[in-house]
Amino acid sequence: MTDVPAIAQVAAPLVDIRDLRLYYGTVEALHGITMGIAARQVTALIGPSGCGKSTLLRCLNRMNDLIDGVRVTGSLRLDGQEVNSPTLDVIELRRKVGMVFQKSNPFPKSVFENVVYGLRIAGVTRRDVLEDAAERSLVGAGLWDEVKDRLQASAFSLSGGQMQRLCIARAIAVNPEVILMDEPCSALDPRSTARIEDLIGELRATFTIVIVTHNMQQAARVSDMTAFLFEGHLIEYGDTKRLFTNPACRQTEDYITGRFG
């Protein structure tokens, strides 16, 4: 145990979370989370199952709205704008905050149509714009060389790892500021996982990435900052290297050394 503060202060955070509480009906699932997420960094959320890390992640693009009976208090600001405000345009928010899910979820359309889906629903119809965006996103997701000859093939003809990268390409096609990743590699084999981890390393130059992961080695490998959540509390938040080598809290130490969780 050292004397570093358990919750690190981030200067000029892109996402500023203050005393965020979330209730499923009457059950409080997040107990006053306060943290800042820096721009153009990879922030990992770790913790045992059910600790609230996915719930916290989904607060960032208000995906929890889809669940009946969810209530949120406290403040969550993105670029200084209150995300939980009832007057906020959720559609606009979700264009700024993309998301990649645990299970890859390509749409039953061609590879091309999957990538440009976000643009199409935003009303883009010009073919050259769509094609440029598709190429840029697929290159960005490291998938271009593999699919450039079969853009019109069904997305389901891709392998599991390719599908997940397609979902990443789909997310970056609309040029978001933040990309949320909810255990993006948990259903993939080690090779595909390595591929996606490399990709995250490349994407951090352009995007702010928040990743939820079960895999502590992965968090250690890909992230700049790590937050450890336990039973809805933010236990520790700090520089990844420091947190894994010199945790401030006993609970963090127990978790990362595999004594529970």
């Binding site: 693009n61 995906m63 889809l66 559609i91 606009e92 928010l93 979700r94 264009r95 993309g98 998301m99 899910f101 299970k103 979820n105 749409f107 039953p108 889906y117 976000g118 199409r120 629903i121 935003a122 979902c167 789909r170 997310a171 609309v174």
Partner: peptide
């Protein structure tokens, strides 16, 4: 699957767009 709805909404589509572009065809 739920993932289709979430994936579409997470890209900033409205429920109506999700319905007409994905759910009804599927």
């Amino acid at each position: 699957p739920r993932g289709i709805r979430e994936g579409s909404l997470a890209l900033g589509s409205t429920r109506l767009q999700t319905l007409t572009r994905l759910l009804l065809p599927m």
